[in-house]
Simulated scan of single mutants.
Amino acid sequence: MTIITVFSIVLTILVYIFTLFVAKRYSSPFTTPVFLSTVIIIIVLVASHISYREYEPAKEIMTYLLGPATVALAVPLYKNRHILIQNLLPALAGVFTGTILTIITAILLGKAFKLSKLMITSLSIKSTTIPVASEISKIIGGDEILVAAFVMITGMFGAMFGLKILDRIKVSSPFSRGLSLGTISHGIGTSQAVKEGELQGAVSSVAMALSAVFTSILVPWLIPLFLN
């Protein structure tokens, strides 16, 4: 492990801890830890002349640790399994509707702004977690770099503004709030849902998984339908 890799890991952890403190002290969409820590880390890396390629080994190590963190979501999921089973059909209908609408909206907006087919194709899978979106992009002819960027921006937007939008439109049900975040803003939104409550986090993780399945099925069919 190189010095840069160790520095990058320590930097990421310290910056995230700092942004958690800032978020508690100054509540704002722009102090959301995912957003603020990303901005600070980019500034530090640029100032230190550390390229993304040099930072990547640290990212790979930290990404590997997401595995146990993701598995840990099974605990609140198990605890709230009765609520999930009772609301299974509404949840399936909600995730399916949310998934198909976000895909169609992305395609139509792309066409309205006269984006290229490559851009629209990459944009259409923005609400799916990156590992799944990367595989879908190979099937539909998207660009993996664009896909990763769109997915990150979507997740970050959901984490920053999702709960506030739900507050504004008076969605108070923990089940509905978790379902919305997981469907639209995948893992990053789910991390925010977990902070709000155990039920929200459990429902959001289910919605994230279902959305990935529905997107995998729907996008290869919808892209030719709207773009050919």
Rank of each mutant, 00 (worst) to 15 (best):
T105P: 00
I140D: 11
Q200Y: 02
G187Q: 05
A159P: 00
L218I: 11
I100Y: 06
I188E: 02
N87Y: 12
L101W: 09
L14H: 07
L66C: 10
P90L: 05
L66H: 02
I107S: 12
M119A: 12
Q200I: 09
F175G: 00
L101R: 03
I165D: 02
I184T: 03
S116F: 07
A193C: 10
M1K: 01
L227P: 13
S216Q: 06
M160P: 05
I217K: 11
F226L: 06
T154S: 05
V44Y: 08
L66V: 06
V75C: 04
I83Q: 07
A149P: 00
V71I: 15
P220I: 09
M62D: 12
T154E: 04
F35T: 07
H186N: 04
L179T: 00
T121P: 04
L225Q: 13
I165H: 01
Q192C: 04
T31R: 13
I42W: 05
G155N: 07
I42Q: 02
V39P: 11
I120E: 06
P29N: 10
L101V: 15
S205Q: 08
K111L: 15
R177L: 14
S48K: 09
I136S: 03
A72D: 05
I153P: 04
Y52F: 15
F113V: 12
G197R: 10
S176G: 03
F175D: 01
E196K: 07
M1V: 06
L199F: 09
S137A: 14
V95N: 09
I217F: 10
L92I: 15
L123E: 10
